[in-house]
Amino acid sequence: MSNKWNLIVDVDECINCYNCALAVQDEYAEMEHPGYTAPMPKHGHRWINILRAERGKFPIVDVSFVPTMCNHCDDAPCVEAAENNAVHKRSDGIVVIDPKAAKGQKHLVDACPYGAIWWNEIEEVPQHWNFDAHLLDEGWKEPRCVNVCPTGALKSVKVSDLEMSQIVKDEELETLKPELETQPRIYYKSLKSLTKVLIAGTLEKVSNGRTECAADIHVSLSQSGSPVAESVTDEFGEFKFDGIDRNSGAYQLNLMCNDISQKIVDVDVKNESLVLELDI
């Protein structure tokens, strides 16, 4: 089985520096790579697009950045939608849009369920980030976005599909919109900031007539009587549960000090994270 390209995005390590997106501009803006891509317009295209995910509310917020790009799907809707075989899957896993054959095929923009295909008004071609195929074919060891990423949030791996499935398992990787079954080759670590919500809060208590942060309080989270997760408040009385499904309904928080329940709080999880201010 031949080795194929995959990209692993570690969301926890993305610092939103935009180096990856800038490398795309540097490589493609107003620069043609014959046989691979027409020039990208200097402004307006986001072949690598960084999403900002803000969860929570002052004073507990959680901010993550999720670089998104063409997913190089193995079952790519764009390949299917293209006329004249304008989009094809290479044997190394990379999906490429032929700039000549794809001319005028604006419908490909809508064919991509991830919004990763961009319409170039000047050249009249649909465009995407093609994994820097022209550079890899020249012998580059990694695409430019990986090369410029300071923290290693982006990592490219060229392995067999079998090896990749093991990596996915070991590192608990996910893909965007798995329900579409497009078989993306862009994998994510810690995608929960985009897909899940938080239940977080601050606890305070009154001690000698003074309001203080309630530290070392055990907080257990349960749903319909079944335990979900446990946490202990820190010196600032803060606790945080991550990975809660959106709109997952009613939960109970049991606040315990020295194994004695102090308070039970009912919450209802909707589409957004919850930040609670509680006293005990």
Partner: peptide, 12 residues
């Protein structure tokens, strides 16, 4: 900044 947070910060 809430008094409790200042106190907690100083102590930590």
């Amino acid at each position: 900044v809430p008094e409790k947070d200042i106190l907690a910060l100083a102590r930590k």
